[in-house]
Write a protein that binds this DNA or RNA. Structure first.
Length: 399
DNA sequence: TCTGGGGTCCTAGGACCC
DNA sequence: TCTGGGGTCCTAGGACCC
């Protein structure tokens, strides 16, 4: 039986938070973002959007379009607090929630709605109650899969509710421009336009004909996208709490520079921040990455894997400095970033380290307690051979 | 006043091992 | 001596999303 998945998207979330703090902002063109060098629009009010202002646009450009815009730098602790209120509200209706970002979530409402006579009325009531209780506005997509729900919440804003059954896909989604397809961004969209694909319907037609050119363009995503567009994508809401896989910090310099010592000072601060955030998240990482962006916006990533995972400031800073030394050419640099990657829990490290320190002892102990495959899975990498691997090795030995 | 910062996931090529 | 296939790990780069 088809599930009922909701995608709930908070409308102009950051701006709405600011309006709730200062109601005099309501109805005015408001931009959340920085106005200095490199400043871009993080998000903006609907009034500002009427002037053509968009997320990601350089702030100076936004101000040309809308000179009276009020610019507010972000207050992220406020947004985080309101985001918690949002999630706690949704939890009252279903505990099967996947928070996709600070201002959106997927909810599996199948069970909740199974005994409800008028599900649409129930959902409308949810939307209204969220507004009454928290002041937040949202749009909601209702569908049998996460992809369709996501497309639905995007369809009508603000305070929209869009239901997309499989039979509605052609009517609702086909006329939309190809850019509105979740996952098709500003690199892929122009390529598709060049191929004569201007709408989601154009794409669906070619996909359902298994057009070889389209197949090639999407590679291994092809069948996933074919499922999405035909309403057979994933309906599994991931309720596991977010577990970060990397923690990074980057900054655009006040002035472009090529001076090693100057950039090293930035790298020091970035490393310190990364170390602190990793400690706060109780994570250690197996590799350190340095990112440099030059004055032509060319980005290079250089990373180094460590023998032992760390979140120590000095260690991170050391590796990042080595990478900087080896890769700072004569180009002027405008941005540097430091990221700690391949994060794991320190408790897992203790087990791993102890295995390498007293390998035989621990091996014997563990082998009696656990299946080898299970142990390998816990170690994240094979420490002991499974039976199949032993067989394979035997085969080579007898050659 | 040209174009942020936080992430995730995927790919491709080379090194290395069996 | 040459040939080769399968697999993993590491590194670099790129697309995309909010």
């Amino acid at each position: 039986m088809a599930k009922v998945i909701l995608h709930i998207d908070l409308n102009a979330f950051f701006v709405r938070c600011e309006e709730l703090e200062d109601p005099s902002l309501i109805g005015k063109p408001v931009i959340i973002g920085h106005s200095g060098r490199g400043g871009v629009v993080s998000t903006c009010s609907y009034k500002a959007r009427e002037f053509g202002v968009r997320s990601g646009m350089p702030t100076f450009q936004a101000l040309k379009l809308c000179p009276n815009a009020i610019i507010i730098p972000g207050h992220y602790s406020l947004y985080s607090k309101k985001s918690h209120e949002f999630i706690n509200f949704v939890k009252k209706h279903s505990t099967l929630i996947e928070q996709a970002s600070i201002d959106e979530c997927y909810v599996d409402m199948t069970k909740t709605l199974s005994n409800i006579k008028n599900p649409l009325e129930y959902i409308k009531n949810m939307q209204d109650t969220l507004f009454k209780e928290t002041g937040l506005m949202c749009s909601i997509g209702v569908a049998p899969t996460k992809f369709l729900a996501k497309m639905g919440s995007d369809y009508k804003k603000p305070m929209g509710i869009t239901i997309i059954h499989r039979k509605d896909i052609a009517r609702i989604l086909y006329p939309l421009p190809i850019e509105s397809f979740f996952g098709i961004g500003k690199k892929t969209a122009p390529k598709l336009r060049k191929m004569g694909i201007n709408t989601i319907g154009d794409l669906a037609k070619l996909i359902n004909e298994d057009d070889p050119e389209i197949k090639k363009e999407f590679g291994r995503f092809y069948y996933g996208i074919k499922d999405w567009i035909n309403g057979y994508g994933s309906d599994e809401v991931e309720t596991e709490p977010w577990d970060p896989k990397s923690i990074g910090n980057s900054t655009t310099f006040k002035f472009d520079t090529n001076n090693f010592e100057e950039i090293k000072e930035y790298v020091r601060e970035l490393s310190k921040e990364v170390s602190e955030r990793a400690k706060e998240a109780n994570k250690v990482g197996y590799s350190v990455q340095l990112v440099l962006k030059d004055d032509n916006f060319k980005v290079i990533n250089r990373s180094k894997k460590l023998n032992k995972p760390t979140n120590d400031f000095i260690e991170i800073f050391d590796i990042a400095t080595q990478l900087l030394e080896a890769n700072l050419g004569d180009k002027m640099i405008r941005l540097a970033g430091v990221t700690l990657q391949n994060l794991i829990d320190p408790s897992e490290v203790v087990i791993q380290m102890s295995i390498f320190d007293n390998y035989d002892e621990i091996k014997e102990e563990c082998a009696t307690k656990l299946l080898i495959a299970e142990l390998n899975r816990k170690m994240k990498k094979p420490v002991f051979k499974t039976a199949a691997e032993t067989l394979r090795d035997k085969k080579y030995e007898t050659r």
